[in-house]
Amino acid sequence: MTQIYGYARVSTTDQDLTIQEAALRAAGATIIRSEKKSGTTTEGRDELATLIEFARAGDTIIVTRIDRLARSIADLATIVRTLEKKGVHLKATEQPIDTGSPAGRAFLQMLGVFAEFETAIRKERQLEGIAKAKRDGVYKGRKASIDADRINELVAAGKGATEIAKELGIGRASVYRYLPSKTA
């Protein structure tokens, strides 16, 4: 007996999965796996990995849009190849994608190119915004994670880098990177 599975994903924890899940149910998905993870990589996307592993020949995996599945051509191609080897079809509710047909596969590849392009443009705009904020004196970078005064106190107390790292909950390499610049 073949199954129709749904996969829903949003990038941040403050986004809502409800609309995607409802669309997947309406498209016939009986089991839906959802997660709040970035789509720029498949690393750490446990629900997607579980779904791909669990699906069997003849099953269908449905997403609302292809960018819910992957935002890079490499990741999308890997997912599609894996599903094809297993005999699992991929469909999208908002796009004419169905890997069961040549036209559906071609459209999938075109959308994958646009999803990757969109990610690259977004990253470029973000870097431009950060550069402008730095020029305007608004962006100062992230807050320092190393307490310089505390390291100096611990060094003065005769503690070594390993002890300092453990006490402050930072990496020993961070302590070493800090110390030469202060003792030189």
Rank of each mutant, 00 (worst) to 15 (best):
M1F: 06
I4H: 05
I4P: 01
Y7C: 09
A8Q: 02
S11L: 06
T13E: 08
D14C: 03
D16Q: 08
I19Q: 15
E21Q: 13
A22D: 14
L24G: 11
A27F: 12
A27V: 10
G28W: 02
I31N: 11
I31S: 12
R33M: 14
E35K: 12
E35H: 11
K36N: 10
S38H: 03
G39H: 04
E43Y: 07
E43S: 07
E43T: 11
G44D: 01
G44E: 01
R45Y: 09
D46A: 14
D46C: 08
L48R: 10
A49C: 02
A49I: 01
L51M: 13
I52S: 04
I52H: 01
R56C: 06
D59G: 07
I62V: 14
V63N: 01
T64H: 09
A70L: 03
A70G: 05
S72N: 03
S72M: 00
I73G: 01
A74Q: 04
I79P: 06
T82H: 09
E84I: 02
E84Y: 02
K85C: 04
K85M: 07
K86I: 00
G87C: 01
H89G: 06
L90S: 07
E94P: 03
Q95I: 10
Q95S: 10
P96V: 12
P96L: 13
I97F: 05
I97L: 05
S101T: 15
P102F: 13
P102V: 09
A103S: 12
R105S: 09
L108I: 13
L108R: 13
M110G: 09
M110V: 15
M110R: 10
G112P: 03
G112M: 02
V113A: 15
V113L: 15
F114D: 00
F114N: 01
E116R: 04
E116T: 10
E118M: 04
A120K: 15
R122D: 13
R122V: 15
R122I: 15
K123V: 12
K123C: 09
K123N: 15
E124A: 12
Q126D: 11
Q126V: 14
L127M: 14
G129L: 06
I130A: 13
K132P: 06
A133H: 00
D136S: 10
V138R: 12
Y139W: 15
G141R: 11
R142A: 13
K143R: 12
A144Q: 09
I146Q: 08
I146Y: 08
I146C: 09
D147W: 07
A148V: 08
D149S: 11
R150H: 07
N152R: 14
L154H: 02
L154E: 03
V155D: 02
K159A: 06
T162M: 07
A165K: 02
A165P: 00
E167N: 03
L168G: 06
G169P: 03
G169A: 04
I170E: 04
I170V: 13
I170N: 04
G171R: 08
R172G: 00
A173N: 05
S174H: 04
R177G: 08
R177D: 11
Y178R: 07
L179H: 03
K182P: 00
A184P: 03
